[in-house]
Computed example of a mutant assay.
Amino acid sequence: MNVEPLEETDSFTYLGSTINKNGGTEEDVKARIQKARVAFIMLRKIWRAKQIKTNTKLRIFNSRVKAVLLYGSETWRSIQKTLTRIQTFINKCLRRILHLKWTDKISNNYTLENDQATTHRK
């Protein structure tokens, strides 16, 4: 029987999540954001399509992109830095879906109904 010694490593991927020797979540969060970014980019034709309602685009975003982003997140430590990184990524995606520039200002009363009413008037 040939027995080879196990190689020691600082991190490895198991079931799509990065396991770190120190138990940190930083590498896993980075990898999840990158995978979600790829999923978001693959759907760019949908985000640009004017025939698809905003509500439908948001449902696609939640089911296809956020699902990839948050897979395994129940094992992450909830620290403010992690939560901020995730929320920043989500905000960037939503701005692209809604065709908003970073400098655009929207009141706190903005709703999807307002967006759809604007779309129908054009």
Rank of each mutant, 00 (worst) to 15 (best):
I79S: 08
S11L: 09
L112W: 02
T9W: 03
I60W: 00
K35E: 09
G23F: 04
R32H: 01
I41L: 15
K53L: 06
T88W: 08
L70I: 08
I19E: 12
L6G: 07
T82H: 06
V65R: 04
R44D: 14
K57I: 07
L112G: 09
K53E: 05
T54A: 13
D104L: 07
N62Q: 13
K30N: 06
F61M: 05
S78V: 07
E113G: 10
N114G: 01
Q80R: 06
L83T: 12
D28M: 10
R48Y: 00
S11C: 14
E4N: 12
I86A: 04
G72K: 02
V65H: 09
R85P: 06
K81S: 12
I33E: 03
N91F: 04
W47H: 11
I33M: 11
Y14C: 14
P5I: 04
I33Y: 06
K92L: 03
E4W: 06
H99A: 14
K45Q: 14
K101G: 08
T13G: 10
K81R: 15
T75D: 11
N2V: 05
T54P: 08
Y71A: 15
N108H: 12
T88M: 03
E7Y: 08
R95V: 07
S107G: 15
K30Q: 11
Q80L: 01
T13S: 13
V29M: 06
T13F: 03
M42G: 08
A36E: 00
I52N: 00
W47P: 12
T56C: 01
I90D: 05
L58E: 00
